[in-house]
Nucleic acid binder design. Structure first.
Length: 594
RNA sequence: GGGGGCGUAGUUCAGCUGGUUAGAACGUCGGCUUGUCACGCCGAAGGUCGCGGGUUCGAGUCCCGUCGUUCCCGCCA
């Protein structure tokens, strides 16, 4: 039977579903919300009424109003209703301590059914067991879940806090274009065809990088923006095609001042929104040291399990695998997995497979027992070599030693990943531990072996370190950049740099990047020209806002802190985007599909 | 671009070495129920086993392809 829908009329909500308590007993109230759960006891019906503030129990009691009770019989999950009634204390022993409003209930005498709902495809509750596919298709239902609503509330509070904090420090928020110009380096661009200029395209910004530099040249010496950025690359749990940055740029500063602003912002956000006290100051590590000790440029510092150079011990051995790698300019490094010499053969084989999947040729292992070192390769290690290994890895009986021999990049890659994997398996990561870290002195350039040229590791506007300027000609790969990343628990949450503000330096860098004069002029001519007109020294940083919120809410996926996220293949399951368009639209744009 | 997981009732899943009637829980519907709050009790309905092809006497199960989703590598200045 169709349930009739009633008009709202002149009814006005007096309270929300999260605030009523013992103080309100005796008051007449009018609540509106969604039917969360209905419990029918024949004579009496309970409704849990839900809005984004909470849940309030509504009672329909024949002694109070039998007409309302009859109507309540028709209510189903997710119907929208308005109820008027009296706040009453619950009978003796019926208080629900799990609900903030659990001391009271609203005894209803007036009920309006404002809208009905089909049975929802999944239950609207926090401990949801529905898959992501169905949740994303019915995102508006998923968004009704209190947990997601709390996430978005925290996100809102973060926007506010960021704006307030930066405003207090004289930063001003300025919007930059979303329809902008395609750039040659970096991620793949999302393109937008121009109708007025057939065959020409806008790009959606990967970041407002050039605009914020131009704002510095324009004299807005402290800029920020909470801004959408777009990158057409493959996705991950912490990567969406459109994502939000807190973008910051400052003039007349060195890296220290930018880092100070970023640190204070981060500390303040975590204190305010997460009740988490971060250290002051954040520790720093150079890129070189991070790679050397942790095999990563964003090391998780919540646990040790450091990488150790075992080359001396390897060199003293007769183990050909190690020796030939060393002769080829490679290295041998190991990690000491404390107290794990009881790992089964199968477990170790699993680690070897893990290493090989990452590209390692192999993974050597040695068990340190009470009888000394044991493994199939120990026979190649004379006692002196064994002593060197034990000393290098600070090994003692009970330990398991793992080694990778390869070129430094591969050693870092494999042992860095193995370090994280082992920490997870051995549960070495303490809960509620928050360890931020600055990584500094990144290389300016990265060798792209396929293309046979250098690319900018950060971006092509990053300033080289002054003392490395002479290397620009002799050894470009060794030039360090004035770039810095902020890492928290192994997540890169912000990255920035001091920029080039002198045209000749910028032109030289474009040269190194094999961006020809003509191309540089076509792509970045406006910036190069602007640099000539009194560009101040400047630098900045950008936070990955979504990752920040995910950390603060404890969500593993940034999809749970974005209202309408895309899937791994960058589609919107609810609105079914992207989709085909009319031929007339294409014709207007001068586009013919292949 | 590559690798792994998943796809069976509205939802989450089970379904063994291929075997004839594909199950459970939750949800839904009906009945009962005046103090529940994940209410309870009784009963019922509900299936294109993602899609296409193949192997087979026989396929949810095996094989190939494809689509979707997810995790990872590459990629993401």
């Amino acid at each position: 039977m169709e349930v009739p829908i009633e008009a709202l009329g002149d009814w006005e909500r007096t309270h929300d579903c999260g605030t009523l308590g013992a103080d309100y007993i005796g008051q007449r109230v009018l609540l509106m919300g969604w039917v969360w759960r209905r419990r029918d006891h024949g004579g009496v019906i309970f409704i849990d009424l839900r809005d984004r503030y909470g849940i309030t129990q509504i009672v329909f009691n024949p002694q109070h109003d039998s007409a309302a009770l009859q109507k309540a019989d028709q209510l189903r999950s997710e119907f929208v209703i308005a109820v008027e009634g009296v706040v009453e204390s619950r009978p003796e022993g019926m208080i629900n301590s799990k609900l903030p409003t659990g001391a009271i209930e609203v005894n209803c005498d007036q009920l309006r059914t404002l809208n009905t709902s089909p049975t929802p495809p999944f239950l609207i509750e926090d401990e949801i067991d529905a898959g992501e596919e169905i949740r994303l298709k019915y995102r508006y239902l998923d968004l009704r879940r209190p947990r997601i609503q709390q996430n978005l509330l925290l996100r809102h509070q973060a926007y506010r806090a960021v704006r307030n904090l930066l405003d207090e420090q004289k930063f001003i928020e300025i919007e930059t274009p979303i329809l902008t110009k395609s750039t040659p380096e970096g991620a793949r661009d999302y393109l937008v065809p121009s109708r007025v200029h057939p065959g020409h395209f806008f790009a959606l910004p990967q970041s407002p990088q050039t605009y914020k530099q131009l704002l510095m040249i324009a004299g807005y010496d402290r800029y920020f923006q909470i801004v959408k950025c777009f990158r057409d690359e493959d996705l991950r749990a912490d990567r969406q095609p459109e994502f939000t940055q807190i973008d910051i740029e400052m003039s007349f500063v060195r890296e220290d001042q930018v880092m100070d602003v970023a640190e204070r912002l981060t500390r303040s956000l975590f204190a305010k929104l997460g009740k988490i006290n971060l250290p002051d100051p954040f520790p720093r590590l150079t890129y070189h040291e991070a790679m050397d000790r942790f095999g990563s440029d964003k090391p998780d510092m919540r646990f040790a399990l450091e990488l150790v150079d075992a080359s001396v011990g390897a060199r003293a051995s007769e183990f050909k695998v190690f020796r030939s790698v060393l002769e080829d300019g490679g290295e041998v490094k190991g990690i000491n997995v404390k107290g794990c010499n009881s790992f089964s053969r199968g477990k170790i084989d699993g680690l070897i497979a893990f290493a090989q999947d990452l590209g390692a040729k192999g993974l050597s292992w040695i068990k340190h027992t009470d009888n000394g070192l044991e493994s199939s390769i120990v026979k190649f290690f004379p006692e002196a070599a064994q002593t060197l290994l034990i000393k290098a890895l600070d090994s003692e009986p009970g330990d398991l030693l793992l080694f990778v021999a390869d070129q430094p990049a591969m050693v870092a890659r494999v042992l860095g990943a193995l370090r994280l994997e082992l920490a997870q398996r051995l549960e070495l990561i303490p809960a509620d531990s928050w360890t931020p870290l600055w990584v500094t002195e990144f290389p300016l350039l990265e060798r792209d072996e396929e293309a046979g040229r250098f690319t900018a590791m950060h971006h092509p506007f990053t300033s080289p370190m002054e003392e490395d300027l002479p290397l620009m000609d002799s050894d470009p790969g060794a030039v360090r950049a004035r770039a810095y990343d902020l890492v928290l628990n192994g997540n890169e949450i912000a990255g920035g740099s001091v920029r080039i503000f002198q045209r000749p330096v910028q032109a030289r860098l474009f040269e190194l990047l094999a961006i020809g004069k003509e191309e540089a002029e076509a792509k970045f001519g406006f910036l190069l020209e602007a640099l000539e007109y009194g560009a101040p020294p400047h630098g900045g940083i950008a936070f990955g806002f979504d990752r920040l919120i995910a950390l603060l809410t404890g969500e593993d996926s940034i999809r749970d802190i974005i209202a309408f996220p895309k899937t791994n293949k960058a589609s919107g399951l609810m609105e079914n985007a992207p989709s085909a368009v009319d031929n007339t639209q294409l014709r207007d744009l001068g586009i013919r599909l292949a």
